[in-house]
Design a protein around this nucleic acid. Structure first.
Lengths: 248, 248
DNA sequence: CGAGCGTTTGAAATCGGTCAACAGCAGTGG
DNA sequence: CCACTGCTGTTGACCGATTTCAAACGCTCG
């Protein structure tokens, strides 16, 4: 884990293209400069390295600058589940605020970088900037909504509906970040997808094959092309709601 | 839905026994009085009445004063899932902050009452009271953790493990509120339990019968007695983590 | 080039779902 | 006070989606 003093890099929130997804949303440029002074360092992670681990004391929350991370929640008996995949602009570590201790592991799925937001400093600044405060509340709230949708997915959708929603959700989030919505690289293994969706890796693999036969997708290794988005939408059922709003 | 001006009742946060679960945690008595002035009304609900509905504009968040509510998240195609059961002292409506619109239905499972916290006023006060601000962040964060545990339950536990965890979780939360941890009344139907746990009502019923045969519980209608808590813990697997921390 | 992981595919097993009948209790109205 | 009705819960039988177990394939990286 590689800490980089921010001075080593010209990048600041005020110039960051991810501003539209991250903390600064809705802030005046004056206020964003105050946020700049809050973010005094960044963390660079190699693939597989943890940003934090379940049980670590919380000192900071994080904004993903580039890369992809997964968060996973583990049981004492070793069983664990991936609860989220996270893209640039998303905040991580929020589940640690309640107990001053992170409740999950956050692990890089590829080389990644995250902005470090010391939480005490952040709360202080949020008291001074109403729109920063409100944006933070919105981020937390949307996180809750996202989880609710995920819960509904695990609780009531069938395997193929879950996978189709998952692909469409990824597509939406990537396209909001300027990537192609039709063709992208899956940063996670079949097993990780399965864990996230509450199904076995074999089922994921079979479904990918089935989707391919039906002409819905093309997939080669982890490079996927969504050929028939409407067909996927159909499959995902009216469950489109699961991924349409929370593009961030 | 029955709005009651708070002046009609002598009850305030400063005298409320639920203070240990609700917003005022960690506040000085001076500060709690400021919260008192924030809560200008309460809502009384009859069984089956909604506190808010998916799509309603958010103006307030709520603290449950007495009673039990469920929150449910619906798909356009009519399928829906219960995402939570909520006891006195818990905050509701938080999922509405992100879009200024509630994302779920909150419905009373019995006659209930909730304190109305106008959200704009609340944010303003939170900027003035660091410990109120921090407590709110903790509440939101714990909600996230709770959802993560629920996700793990739906994604990786088997039906009997889910039900056992559910019972132990309820038991813990009730006992934290001064009720017996061993014997209580289920406010929700088998169908609602099933929806929450991602299984069918028939499965819930069968499992209750099985648990009874095994001497783990006694159940008559909705009155349940946990006879062999250790046995239930065993069944819930080492998944005790799912319900041990978040007692609030 | 070979080792090792990730992935695909098949066959058998199973948990939980679905359909269906029935029981129990509550509330209604005669 | 007792049928009648309707809702909730229980139980059984069967079915099917997914899991589990197993084997083979094919990248990728040292």
């Amino acid at each position: 884990m590689n800490h980089i003093p921010v001075s080593a890099s010209p990048n600041k929130c005020s110039t960051c293209v991810l501003g539209q997804f991250c903390l600064p949303v809705g802030l005046s440029s004056d206020d964003i400069q105050k946020v700049d002074s809050l973010v005094t360092e960044r963390v660079r992670l190699k693939k597989g390295e943890p940003l934090y681990r379940q049980g670590d004391a919380l000192t900071a929350i994080y904004g993903i600058r580039f890369g992809t991370l997964k968060t996973e929640y583990a049981l004492p008996d070793g069983r664990e589940q991936i609860t989220g995949f996270h893209l640039p602009g998303e905040m991580l570590g929020l589940d640690g605020i309640g107990e001053n201790t992170y409740q999950s592991n956050a692990i890089a799925l590829e080389d990644s970088e995250a902005c470090v937001v010391r939480f005490n400093d952040f709360e202080q600044l949020a008291r001074q900037l109403p729109s920063l405060q409100n944006q933070f509340h919105k981020i937390l709230s949307r996180e809750l909504t996202q989880d609710q949708r995920h819960l509904l997915s695990l609780g009531t959708l069938r395997a193929e509906e879950r996978l189709a929603s998952f692909l469409l959700n990824l597509s939406d989030r990537l396209s909001a970040r300027g990537y192609s919505p039709h063709e992208f690289h899956l940063r996670m293994s079949r097993e990780e997808i399965g864990s996230y969706l509450g199904i076995q890796l074999e089922t994921v693999s079979r479904l990918f094959s089935r989707f391919t036969e039906s002409g819905l997708i093309q997939i080669k290794q982890r490079h996927i092309k969504l050929v028939d988005t409407d067909g996927l939408l159909e499959l995902a059922g009216k469950s489109r709601a699961i991924h349409c709003t929370h593009v961030q």
